[in-house]
């Protein structure tokens, strides 16, 4: 069900601009890994290159290897669409499809790909996905209402339900709580803890308490200055990063003395 991710000598570019340089890391399956670091250090860029969403932007490209259970997703001949069915993504801002109902949003991964589902199959997928996203009790009576009518936190959980409905191996989350209030954030964090049992979860966050709460491993990224590439500074168990960091800049960042 879940797969491990190994990053080998990965460089990520926007055109000629090197955004992330020389990343090597091994991300465990069935665990939560957090990416932290200051704005513009390439966390999101690296995350987006993990399911080949990076190359959607004009001029964006990647060098190096990215192994999903030992298979390089950047090997020539690999279809990005296949990669994305295995590596799902939750975005910073909740983005349910405005033309679809809650039910259709959950089934979007199937419906948009033209898959034919029987009524019982789709009912089952909707219920299990919404239950896994801790949203079922809130929306079970209004599955046929538009998804955009939900609150921000509910919309974000709807997006998570939509992502896990297609049963990926890895779930990427790009600051999933930054647009949400503390209660919704708590709901999502609880959810991340449950998702970890079945999926490899990689989360980008600006909130260090959040990284400390939800993740087993933490990677700290930093940037030497504007226009310089972002680099992986330290990658270790979350407790070590926050309590006994090896690098000075990590210690400065996690203790709030950054800059």
């Amino acid at each position: 069900m879940s797969k491990r991710v190994d990053v080998v000598d990965l460089n990520v570019y926007y055109g000629d601009f090197l955004a992330v340089e020389g990343v090597n890391m091994n991300i465990d399956a069935q665990a939560v890994t957090a990416f932290i670091g200051p704005s513009g250090c390439g966390k999101t860029t690296l995350l987006r290159s993990l399911n080949r969403m990076h190359e959607v932007l004009p001029g964006a490209r990647v060098k190096g290897q990215l192994l999903l259970d030992g298979e390089d997703i950047y090997e020539s001949g690999v279809d990005p669409v296949t990669v994305r069915t295995q590596v799902g993504m939750v975005f910073q801002r909740p983005n349910p499809f405005p033309t679809m109902t809650i039910r259709e949003n959950v089934l979007a991964g199937y419906k948009l790909n033209g898959a034919r589902l029987s009524k019982s199959q789709s009912e089952e997928i909707v219920e299990t996905s919404l239950r896994s996203a801790n949203l079922w009790n809130e929306v079970k009576d209004r599955l046929d209402r538009p998804g955009s009518g939900l609150s921000g936190g509910q919309q974000q959980r709807l997006c998570i339900a939509r992502t896990i409905a297609v049963k990926p191996d890895v779930i990427l989350m790009d600051e999933p709580c930054s647009a949400l209030d503390p209660i919704s954030t708590l709901a999502i964090e609880d959810l991340i803890g449950e998702l970890q049992q079945d999926y490899t979860v990689i989360i980008v966050t600006h909130n260090m308490q959040q990284a400390a709460r939800v993740s087993q491993k933490t990677a700290f990224f930093n940037i030497a200055g504007t226009g310089k590439p972002g680099k992986l500074i330290e990658y270790d168990d979350t407790t070590s990063i926050f309590n006994t960091p090896q690098e000075k800049s990590t210690e400065d960042y996690v203790s709030g003395r950054f800059g």
């Binding site: 399911n51 969403m53 959607v56 669409v81 296949t82 994305r84 069915t85 295995q86 799902g88 993504m89 975005f91 801002r93 983005n95 349910p96 499809f97 405005p98 033309t99 979007a108 991964g109 419906k111 948009l112 790909n113 033209g114 997006c159 939509r162 992502t163 297609v166």
Partner: peptide, 24 residues
């Protein structure tokens, strides 16, 4: 964001245009 949401679900570009962009 809607295009990216669709791509992230493993939907092909032409299907994204047909089923997400045009209906919106």
């Amino acid at each position: 964001e809607l295009r990216e949401a669709s791509y992230a679900l493993g939907v092909r570009k032409w299907r994204t245009i047909l089923k997400v962009v045009l209906p919106t």
